[in-house]
Structures are given as structure tokens and as C-alpha cells.
């Protein structure tokens, strides 16, 4: 039986990808950020996940306004790397796990999630930066990846409650897959940041840390935070944190925190990072 053995929350700021690609990740600016990921990189080397269900959002890179899926699941063998305006990142292509991805897609649709199935897609920094943060610069990514792209750009984005419920349904789907697989789920994006308008640069250390506390809790209050609260408190792009709820919903009622790290700033953004283990 496949099993979700851990959940990881992480920011996916594009500049972190640039730092890795240009070897600046241990300089004065980036050093404290990457130091926060050292523990996780070691841990991942031991955990050796077979597959990561990687929840992220496309930043108007593969999808334009002509098609905006709320939840899209990547069922392809392989995903290329987007050119986001300065050439594709020099990272390996991403290998999918079509067997598990299709299984999850089928199970989710039976559970009344209106998934969009994707068999061809390039992935942007939202997906590749977390891979770099967890695995550094391998010649080939050490696990297969199932991209789960969430619309958090065009409103309304899915509610926190819906995201949590999707996580619960993913857990059920993974556990009904017959093959023994070590599966992780990552929720990426956030934490507080605003990239637009006169309020650009907003950060909220207190709120972000309360959010991390809520993820560690054994109640599910966090799923009921409304969009307007994310927007007011964490900046217009802080809404990406709803994607962490898909990860958290997939871990069950009780979790154990293995690692937690928070740093301000990276470019415009607060960097947060948490590693959780199901403890039911």
C-alpha cells in the first residue's frame, strides 16, 4: 500500500532558484535561508520518497487567461521547464508517476472533486524551486513528482476549506493505491508577500507564525480562514498559503513537527518552511 509519510510546507520564491543556479546560496543574503533547509536536505536523503505530490501554482507561465483550471493534476510521464522570460532554469526535467497520478485523479473525481487532468505541461518556479530547496542540484531529481497546480491567481481561488478537503481525499486516494510507495506531499508558496501596487512589500511575521502554529495543531481551524484575511494580513500573494492546507489536510488529524524555520526577507517575501509527520 502507498502511504503519505510526511508533509512539507515551503515558500517557492523564484529568487531562491536563481541563488541555487548561480551558486550564491551561501552568501550573506541567502545563507540564513538555505541554512534553514539544511536539516530538511539531510532528512530527505534518509527518507528517500518514491513520489512527491507537489502542490504549487502556475504563475501565468504554462496557463494563460484562456484556460484557468482550479485544480489540475499532472498525469504525464515527464514535465518540461517553463521559460519565464529569462530562459528555462538549468534544472533537470521532472519525471512524473502516471500510475499513481491517474489513480489519484480517478479517485478524486469519484469523490466529487472536479479535477482537470493534464497530460502535457511545463512547470515553473512554483514547482522547481521547492525541488531545489529540498534536493540542491542533482543531475536528476531523486524522486518522481506529481504536479498538482492550483489556481491562486484569478479570483475566486478555492477556499481554504475546499483545499483541506482535497488533501483529505488525496490521503484516501494514495492509501488505496496497491503498490508500496513512500509518498510525500508538499504544499508550496507564501508566506506573507505582496508583489503589486503601493502596498507592495507587506510582510507579517506574527500572522505567518500563527499560521504555522495552526498547521501544527490537531484541530482544523486553519481551514476556515477566509480569503479576505489572507489578503489583508499577508499581502495579495500571501493567498498562496491555501496550498499548504492541501498538504496539511492529507496528513490526518494529528501531526508531529519535525522541523520549522522562518526567515525575513527573501526579495519581497517571507520564507517559511515546515516538515510534518502524520501522528494519528
Amino acid at each position: 500500500m502507498a502511504k503519505i509519510t510526511a508533509g512539507v510546507g515551503s515558500s517557492h520564491v523564484p529568487l531562491l532558484g536563481v541563488a541555487v543556479d548561480q551558486g550564491k546560496d551561501r552568501d550573506d543574503y541567502f545563507g540564513p535561508i538555505f541554512a534553514g533547509y539544511d536539516w530538511t536536505r539531510e532528512w530527505e536523503k534518509n527518507e528517500k520518497p518514491d513520489v512527491v505530490v507537489l502542490v504549487y501554482n502556475d504563475h501565468a507561465s504554462y496557463f494563460d487567461m484562456n484556460i484557468v483550471p482550479t485544480f489540475a493534476i499532472g498525469c504525464a510521464e515527464r514535465f518540461g521547464i517553463c521559460d519565464e522570460g529569462w530562459g528555462p532554469r538549468p534544472v533537470p526535467d521532472v519525471e512524473g508517476h502516471p500510475d499513481l497520478a491517474w489513480h489519484i485523479a480517478q479517485s478524486l473525481i469519484l469523490d466529487d472533486f472536479d479535477m482537470t487532468i493534464i497530460n502535457k505541461m511545463d512547470v515553473d518556479h512554483g514547482l522547481t524551486v521547492p525541488l531545489s530547496m529540498m534536493f540542491d542540484k542533482p543531475a536528476k531529481w531523486p524522486c518522481k513528482v506529481i504536479p498538482l497546480a492550483v489556481n491562486v491567481v484569478t479570483y475566486p481561488v478555492p477556499s481554504g476549506n475546499r483545499c483541506w478537503a482535497l488533501g483529505e481525499a488525496i490521503k484516501k486516494a494514495v492509501e488505496s493505491f496497491p503498490e508500496d510507495l513512500n509518498v510525500q506531499i508538499w504544499g508550496t508558496g507564501g508566506m506573507s508577500h505582496q508583489l503589486q501596487g503601493p502596498r507592495a512589500g507587506l510582510l507579517n511575521r506574527e500572522w505567518d507564525n500563527r499560521f504555522l502554529d495552526m498547521l501544527e495543531s490537531d484541530n482544523d481551524d486553519v481551514r476556515h480562514i477566509q480569503h479576505i484575511e489572507y489578503l489583508r494580513e499577508t499581502g495579495s500573494e500571501g493567498i498562496e498559503m491555501v496550498m499548504w492546507l492541501i498538504m496539511r489536510g492529507a496528513l490526518g488529524k494529528t501531526v508531529k513537527t519535525l522541523h520549522r524555520h522562518y526567515h525575513i526577507p527573501c526579495s519581497n517575501t517571507a520564507i517559511g518552511h515546515i516538515v510534518l509527520e502524520p501522528a494519528d
Binding site: N161, H227, S236
Partner: peptide, 24 residues
């Protein structure tokens, strides 16, 4: 922090215009 999401789309959208220096 833990209210039920607003279900009326007009109210939902109207709130967005109350955020300073921000276009949702």
C-alpha cells in the same frame, strides 16, 4: 480567525476593494 467563508459573491468581491494600495 475561524469563521465560515462568506457565501455571497457580491459581498465577497466588495471586501476586496477595501484593501489599501491593492488590486485583487
Amino acid at each position: 480567525m475561524a469563521e465560515k467563508p462568506t457565501q455571497n459573491i457580491h459581498e465577497y468581491l466588495a471586501e476586496f476593494e477595501d484593501i489599501p494600495g491593492t488590486r485583487v
